[in-house]
Structure formats: C-alpha cells, structure tokens
C-alpha cells in the first residue's frame, strides 16, 4: 500500500477537560457508535440496493476509495470501499466523491471547497498520480478509479491528510515580501517592469495543494527537505526585482542550506503533477545557477 497509516491519537483534549461531562465520553461514545452501526445497517442496505439498481441501469463509474478512521469500528483497519456513481458528462473526481458521500455514505470524508482549482484543498492520489479532484475528469481515467489520500503524509481520516509539515516547510523560507526600497509616499507605487512580473508570474500561481511535495522522492526520504513548493515560494521573491540585491542574496542563502535546492535530483515528478503548471524543476534549477553565480561573485 502506498499510504502509511500509522497514527497515534493524542489524548490531550480529554485530560484538559476531565472535570466536564466529557469524562464519560469514551464509553458513551462506544455505545453510541454501536447503536448507530446497528440502526444504520438495514438503512444502508436499502440505499445500496437502490443505488445499485440505478447504477446498473445507467452509465456508471466504479470508484475504489480509501477509507480509514482512527476511532470508528470497522474503519480503524484501512480498507477500500467500492462506489458506483451514475456518470454525467463533465463529471469530475470531486463530483463523483460528493455524489457518493451525499447518496451512499455521509461519513466519506475529503477536503474540498471552491470546486475550481484555486483553493487547493482536494489534492488526491488518483489512479497512482497526484491530482486535484475538482480538475480531473472521470472520462480521462481507467476504471476502477482508485482514490487515495496523498502519499507520504499522515492520514487523518479517509482522504484527509495532515498538512502541517507542508505548511511548516512553506513558512520556513520567509514567504513574504521584503524590501528596503519602498517609496516614501503611501500612494506611490514601487515600479516593476512587465518583464519582471512575467518572470515571477508562474511562481505566484501556487495554491498550496501539496501535490508536488507528495510526489517527490527526495522529500519522502528527507523530512527536512524544503520541497518543491517552498523552494518555488523562495523563487517567487528572489526573482522579484522590487526586493533588491541584498534581499536576493539573503534568499539564496536560505535555499542553499543543507536541505535546500541541492537536494533536488531533477526527476521532474513535481513539475508533472503540478495542477497549476508551474515549472517547479526549472525554478529549482535556476536558483541553483543563481546560487553558484553569487557564490563565485563573493568568493
């Protein structure tokens, strides 16, 4: 299996609130879960039969979806569930997941929000490749469509992974504009040539979906590696002429660290999976060249 599912639940919420009604939570919750499981058994059976009839009658897509919940009986051991979703023209992987959740199993869990490839919530591992669910047409995929959480991340539940490590890496490269050349007046713009804006344009398109990091073999083996997204973020500022030469040097120092650009082995996996077509590998290579140039200059 491509996904690691070791998970130790921390129990600090219980300790913090022991004085409250929450103390009885474990046993009460177990009872509730058992009761719910029984109550829903035949309901689900009926729903499944009906949906199956519909799916048989129509053109349908077969999904195999990864399931895991650290605290729900039957889901603690990871498994795949099968869903047969009636196909409509233009249907995406996200549409199919929403249909499956709203029709068959409301506990099917995945992040999603904008439905238009800008919020970056729904990067998934679909038929062995990192993709945004909302941007992937079912008609482009072989069946059964296998949908898993992003590899190399801790799974929280079903298709939801812990993004904290990704965010930490992004935030470690001083991902904010810094300059000593701000104009005096509050209405005065800092000028930027259209060419320079074009230079950084692709790098600004990152939506923090994490697909690149998940696809990167180096990041999988070196937890401290900044990863393609964070390096691209550094590129976005290092190449912005408004920041000035001193700041550029400072930025090159950051990405030249032990777990920085030199780790990249130009396998292009990040570039291949990026849903916003950012030339990540090229950006990393360019930063390497810049770093070499500036080292020669200072040497």
């Amino acid at each position: 299996m491509s996904t690691q599912i070791e998970r130790e639940r921390e129990s600090e919420t219980e300790t913090e609130s022991e004085a409250d009604a929450v103390t009885e939570l474990p046993s009460a919750q177990e009872a509730r879960m058992r009761k719910k499981a029984e109550a829903r058994a035949d309901r689900e059976e009926r729903a499944r039969e009906e949906a199956q009839e519909r799916a048989d009658a129509e053109d349908s897509y077969h999904l195999k979806v990864f399931r895991y919940d650290p605290e729900v009986e039957g889901k603690m051991e990871p498994r795949f569930d099968d869903f047969h979703v009636p196909y409509e023209s233009g249907m995406t992987v996200l549409d199919a997941l929403i249909y499956a959740r709203d029709t068959f199993d409301s506990s099917l869990t995945f992040r999603h929000s904008c439905r238009q490839a800008i919020c970056g919530s729904d990067a998934l591992f679909v038929n062995g490749s990192q993709r945004l669910g909302c941007k992937t047409q079912l008609s482009d995929l072989d069946q059964p469509v296998r949908i898993e959480p992003l590899p190399h991340s801790e799974v929280e539940k079903d298709l939801v992974v812990d993004m904290e490590h990704f965010y930490d890496q992004m935030e470690s490269v001083e991902p904010y504009f810094q300059t000593n050349d701000l104009p005096e007046g509050e209405l005065e713009e800092q000028r930027q040539t259209p060419e320079n804006r074009e230079k950084v344009k692709m790098s600004t398109r990152c939506i923090w979906c994490g697909a690149c990091m998940s696809s990167c073999n180096i990041a999988a083996g070196d937890n401290e590696y900044l990863g393609p997204a964070a390096i691209n973020k550094a590129y976005r500022f290092a190449m912005d002429e408004r920041e000035g030469e001193d700041m550029k040097q400072h930025r090159l120092n950051i990405i030249e660290q032990e777990h920085g650009v030199w780790r990249c082995q130009t396998q292009f996996s990040c570039t291949n999976v990026c849903p916003k077509d950012i030339p990540l590998t090229e950006h990393i290579q360019e930063l390497k060249r810049e770093a070499v140039k500036s080292n020669l200059k200072f040497w």
Binding site: K36, D69, P70, E71, V72, S106, S107, E156
Partner: peptide, 11 residues
Amino acid sequence: VKDPSRTFNTD
C-alpha cells in the same frame, strides 16, 4: 449525523 466520529466529521 450518521458519522459517529470525532475526527474530521464533515457530516
């Protein structure tokens, strides 16, 4: 709410 879970219960 059908999902009994305390973890990421979007239901």
